[in-house]
Design a protein around this nucleic acid. Structure first.
Lengths: 111, 111
DNA sequence: TTAACATATGTGTTTTTGCGCATGTAAAAT
DNA sequence: ATTTTACATGCGCAAAAACACATATGTTAA
């Protein structure tokens, strides 16, 4: 049961829910500094929240040069699947323009 | 977004998740003292956890004589629907026999 | 090699959460 | 009328969580 509780706990914070929501809605890996910019949060807080999400097995990371990119852990359980779908139903309007800012940002990414 | 966070927060505690899980799996209203017996928790803790679940709009109550029966709030949103389904996937084996105890208890209920 | 950038983490502080105890209220039983 | 049963809640405390600040590590750029 603890796995499930850890997932719920991980999602019960605004910053973390926003991160997971972002990753669910854009279909790309994003790096820490991009999350920082989009969410307008301190870098150290974003890093810590990512650590909690990682511990809950919701995200994974891959290092590329000086960046660390985060992405949703591939779904293995029905539970995770349903949780992801639930998060996907949260409307963009409730996210304070985060996704819009994120799309602008991603568009500016050098190819 | 706060509604969603409140739901996740409500579900990120073992006692509360067990209560919701119980209500999801037995298809009946149950009163506080029954939850107390099944979960082997103090009455004041169960009451408090129920209050949190109520605040998150996950459960509702109906008073009958000296008993207060709790039941799952009828589902209105897709989000809630998916969360409920997710909870339903949590196997009984992870619930430390709670549902078994509960079924025995309910069977003993006078008609 | 030094500077700048990207990320992580140690430390102290404040806020939130959960618990135990005691107590309050209302209905039912005696 | 008093006691018992069922449930709720105020209070104080301890543990956990979130935050801000400073700093450490590694990587690329100058």
């Amino acid at each position: 049961m603890d796995e499930h509780i850890n997932i719920f706990k991980a999602l019960s914070d605004a910053t973390r829910l926003k991160i997971v929501w972002l990753l669910t809605n854009i279909d790309e890996k994003i790096c820490v500094s991009e999350i920082v910019e989009v969410l307008d949060e301190y870098q150290y807080n974003v890093s810590r929240h990512l650590k909690i999400l990682k511990k809950a097995n919701l995200v994974e990371e891959v290092k590329e040069g000086k960046w660390v990119f985060y992405y949703l852990t591939p779904i293995k359980s029905e539970f995770r699947q349903l949780i992801q779908e639930a998060i996907k139903t949260i409307p963009e309007s409730q996210m304070n323009n985060e996704i819009h800012k994120c799309k602008l940002l991603l568009a500016e990414r050098p190819k």
